[in-house]
Nucleic acid binder design. Sequence first.
DNA 1: ATATGTTTCAAACGTATGTTTGGGCGGACG
DNA 2: CGTCCGCCCAAACATACGTTTGAAACATAT
Lengths: 208, 208
Amino acid sequence: MAAQSGTVERILDTAEVLFAQKGFAETSLRAITSKAGVNLAAVNYHFGSKEALIQAIFERFLAPFCTELGERITQMVDDGEPVDLERLLRLISRTALGAHGSDPQRLALFFRLCGLAYTQAQGHLRRFIRERYGDVFNRFLAMLASAAPDVPPMELFWRVHFGLGATVFAMSSMDSLRAICKSDFDADLSAADVTQRLLPFIVGGIRA
Amino acid sequence: MAAQSGTVERILDTAEVLFAQKGFAETSLRAITSKAGVNLAAVNYHFGSKEALIQAIFERFLAPFCTELGERITQMVDDGEPVDLERLLRLISRTALGAHGSDPQRLALFFRLCGLAYTQAQGHLRRFIRERYGDVFNRFLAMLASAAPDVPPMELFWRVHFGLGATVFAMSSMDSLRAICKSDFDADLSAADVTQRLLPFIVGGIRA
DNA sequence: ATATGTTTCAAACGTATGTTTGGGCGGACG
DNA sequence: CGTCCGCCCAAACATACGTTTGAAACATAT
């Protein structure tokens, strides 16, 4: 339970960066531990396995985000304000940022990991996330539904996931896209700039 | 050069399915060759390496698609018809379908591979595709620009990639999303149904 | 029928991986 | 002081991987 000398944190910090850069299977425990400056056996000692390490990384990201999102949603419901599509999306985006020290770089990293989780190795991670945090996500979806009453529920379901896909993909290939953008348009956009462009796209898509 | 007994095709057919299911790094040559019913050494004999096999798979997909797309674009330009955003997107979707025997299943598989190519192992594949088929893609982008003259070029660049992301993601997780949709809404959508829902979303997003 | 070039095969090679082991260090507590 | 327990370490382990090899099987053409 204890984290006396910070070994656990150092592993998590290093691993999430390396995983985001190269993928899960392509990143070896040796690469992680050597870059983190800890012993190879530390991962298996503290986490049990490589799979468990991956889940721990997602846990560290999702736990604060989901609790905070849950609170904000209940508060929004209690207030009884009329829910607005654009506000809702900004809410989730602000929550995602706020839950991790307002570091856009780290948020992009997280979405990149999500992208990997969705595309790679269909199995354990999807189950893990859905089991653990499915409730909050469903509540948010319900809010969305009441915010776009003119869109039929099933239609909304698909459009939300299309938007999620656009987000995940944009974050995943953020770096290369920004490089292309710079060479083609001579514009050096930040991660926050990209997010700002992403939101209207999603809103436009959901409204059809 | 010859493909006498269909070994090459059998490898390609099997490999593209397995890669799409589990990713590139997670699929071993032994899994491919044993399922394809050919000898392990066949891949290295016919393709040279695992990397070259992956590129060959994309080549087989992209070559017919890009030549046909190129033809249709020049024809469209020659005709001098006014280009329309929705028509353009339908054109590329129809071309993608037409280039592979009108099999939606196979098209979804291809997009899933594209998703993997974008997220996984940043390196060789992106270069390979960009080098080989960048021209056609750029011509299509130029058409898009003239079809949406009210959207600034850089804005359009990002929105196109957001749309690409939505597409790739939708195709990548097509199966699981369809399963969720069936259990939540009791609606058994086909891959074509999903595509039909995807297009308006992208159009709406690009138009903002 | 013989020779030639191509394709297939079983087996092995070298390497990298995730995981396990057993010992050693150091603070906590009786 | 001695014992215990959590943590760290170098080393080894077993396995899976991509690739290579050399010979056998095959087709083709002279």
